[in-house]
């Protein structure tokens, strides 16, 4: 089983500004881990550091035993680590189909591209209907579906999602979360989810971390954190 991510003592930020300090995090193979926190806590920065879009100032990030800092940014997806950025970030002036094709750009997917594409269109029937449409014209929910499908096209063993529920209608949120919760079982992959929608994220996570001002202040089973008075007070409005 692969898809095992381990961060030890990671610090990262932009220029002189340190956003993250001393981050230890582990996503076991086949696990679903959530990172919750307020706006500006450093959740997106965490995912960007793991994906290699910004360098780590300290610490190591290892994925299935490979230290990611040894790879170039564009090589990381080929190791099985895919990311769905905030808002989906589809290529707006390309069709849904072209977006999916670029998801499978890295050479490791070559023998599987056709089958993956068929799988995705089956998993997301709405994308099959819209496949010749420009991605920029999709609705928020469709965009998020397409972004997840695009990330899955790379055949990842770990999928990272940045606030997939942001800006979606409640019904759509439920749909997206059901899909995400099913990924470890359905496709045998691990999931690292970053969310402000704390209730739903904690309900589905095996393990969850609470990020405040760039540091983890709490960590535990999702269900336990739901019952934690501090978490309830700060994030669930109870």
């Amino acid at each position: 089983m692969s898809g095992h991510l381990k961060l030890a003592g990671v610090a990262a930020g932009y220029g002189q500004v340190r956003v993250l300090r001393d981050i230890d995090l582990e996503v076991p193979a086949g696990g679903l881990v959530a990172v919750i926190g307020a706006n500006g806590a450093g959740k997106t920065t965490l995912l960007r550091a793991i994906a290699g879009l910004i360098p780590c100032a300290a610490g190591t990030i290892a994925f299935d035993g490979t230290v990611l800092a040894r790879l170039s940014d564009y090589q990381i997806v080929g190791r099985g680590l895919a990311m769905v950025p905030e808002g989906g970030r589809l290529f707006p002036f390309m069709t849904v189909l072209e977006n999916l094709e670029l998801g499978a750009y890295h050479s490791g997917t070559k023998p599987h591209r056709k089958r993956e594409l068929a799988d995705m269109l089956e998993l997301f029937p709405i994308l099959a209907d819209r496949r010749r449409q420009m991605a920029g014209s999709l609705s928020g929910g469709e965009r998020q579906m397409c972004a997840i499908a695009r990330a899955l096209m790379s055949r990842p063993t770990l999928l990272m999602l940045d606030e997939p529920s942001l800006g979606l209608a409640p019904m759509m949120v439920e749909k997206v979360f059901t899909l995400i919760a099913g990924l470890p079982r359905l496709r045998g992959m691990s999931v690292l989810l970053v969310e402000q929608n704390v209730q739903d994220a904690l309900e589905m996570a095996d393990t969850a971390y609470v990020l405040e001002r760039g540091m983890f202040v709490k960590c535990g089973a999702g269900k336990d954190l739901l019952d934690d008075p501090e978490v309830q007070g700060a994030y669930l409005g109870l």
Binding site: A51, G52, L53, S72, D73, Y74, Q75, I76, V77, G78, A82, M83, P85, R89, F91, P92, F93, M94, E98, E101, L102, G103, Y105, H106, R150, S154
Partner: peptide, 24 residues
Amino acid sequence: TLTGKAIRGLIQDRPVGVLMGINV
């Protein structure tokens, strides 16, 4: 072509292009 699509992808969103594995 796939390379052509990758180039258009980089034009539209470079960091996401990198996430797709495109060597800028």
